[in-house]
Design a protein around this nucleic acid. Sequence first.
DNA 1: CGCTGAATTGACGGACATCAAGATGTGTGG
DNA 2: CCACACATCTTGATGTCCGTCAATTCAGCG
Lengths: 222, 222
Amino acid sequence: MLAAAAAVNSPHHARPLRSSIASEGPFGMIGAPMRFARNAEIYGEDEPADFLYQVISGVVRTYRMLDDGRRQIGAFYLPGDVFGFEATDVNLSTAEAVNDVRLLVVKRSSVTARAEHERDLASRLWMLTMRELQRVQQHSLVLIKSAEERVAGFLIEMAGRQSGQSAIELPMSRQDIADYLGLTIETVSRTFTHFAQTGVIALETARRIRFCNRAALNRLDA
Amino acid sequence: MLAAAAAVNSPHHARPLRSSIASEGPFGMIGAPMRFARNAEIYGEDEPADFLYQVISGVVRTYRMLDDGRRQIGAFYLPGDVFGFEATDVNLSTAEAVNDVRLLVVKRSSVTARAEHERDLASRLWMLTMRELQRVQQHSLVLIKSAEERVAGFLIEMAGRQSGQSAIELPMSRQDIADYLGLTIETVSRTFTHFAQTGVIALETARRIRFCNRAALNRLDA
DNA sequence: CGCTGAATTGACGGACATCAAGATGTGTGG
DNA sequence: CCACACATCTTGATGTCCGTCAATTCAGCG
């Protein structure tokens, strides 16, 4: 309800009720907390890129549409992650809530202004950007591998990011995974089944995956 | 001669004779000029990432090796471009000279030190990093397209970067192009000939390409 | 002029996309 | 609480783009 109501307003129009409710994140980001319902748009292409975001809870996807209608998901952002780095003053990608999401939103200009005298804030920002750069580079390596390698790598990545126990909950759909890995939904599904048949994983539900043979999975990652 | 001699010494060991020969680049980078012969290594994986580089002349490629022996070229850097941004303190990629290259080399720590009081140097660095981020994102979009789209996009990219006349000189081999686009050398070659047969380009030599139908090329880029 | 690496061209096969149908899961209203 | 509707996921059959293997041509250089 509340989430849905908040979601219809992009953060560019919404304004926090009082600055006293602003929270401070682990990266020194002071910002307004906001909520977005499942599949709500957080920002869109061609909008001014005026904000930085930190995920409090939930998962965010960013993507770009290709002219032929295909969708390439560039990243999934999990709690703690910061996103919204854009080189230009308009967004080149769209951000959406994969499930219900709470974010910390901060104006970019206010961060850069503060970075002028807080020297280590500037270097933290630079570091975050370079981490993001590294992540994208890593991801582009994935896109030239085989379908099995991509899916195995994806599972390992996800396990590593959510306090990797022996089982993980996937918040995103098969279509999301496919668009992230540059595959089709069918190929992703088939690969999952194949992993299950060979005893590498168990599909407790479609979205809940148990790791039965971590070594085999690492080998498949190549 | 001189180039080859300089190339055997990585910049981490070489030291500029006198700081008075240091030059100032367009990005405020003050650094030592260095030369590298064709195919010489500028820096390697697992070496400490202590330097930033600006291309004065020539072309540089950066790549990462996959476990199966394949090579993924992440970028070609042309005169004016700055490279060497690494999130970790060791390099994750290798940089090599595509042809004979002259570079400006600057210690990273000296840049960050100067950025502490020169506020706009810090923001320039951040901007450069975000540009690089954007470039990598763009490139990862390429990797999910068809072979024709990748090659067309590559030609357009290259034309745009070297004062795009109606013809361009490709400094890199077909293998380099293939490893950049995630294709095989045969597919790249076949696509070139196909473009030539359909009158989109003309192969004046294998490395010199004339654009005969820019509109068609843009259409092929998708 | 022959040698060597780079580029081209051809034949073939395989991995993944596409098309199509069926199974499973989920939310909603009676 | 059940039943229906709709979305998501799975499974199967078929096609195609591009990788692989192999041979030939071309360009640069002693």
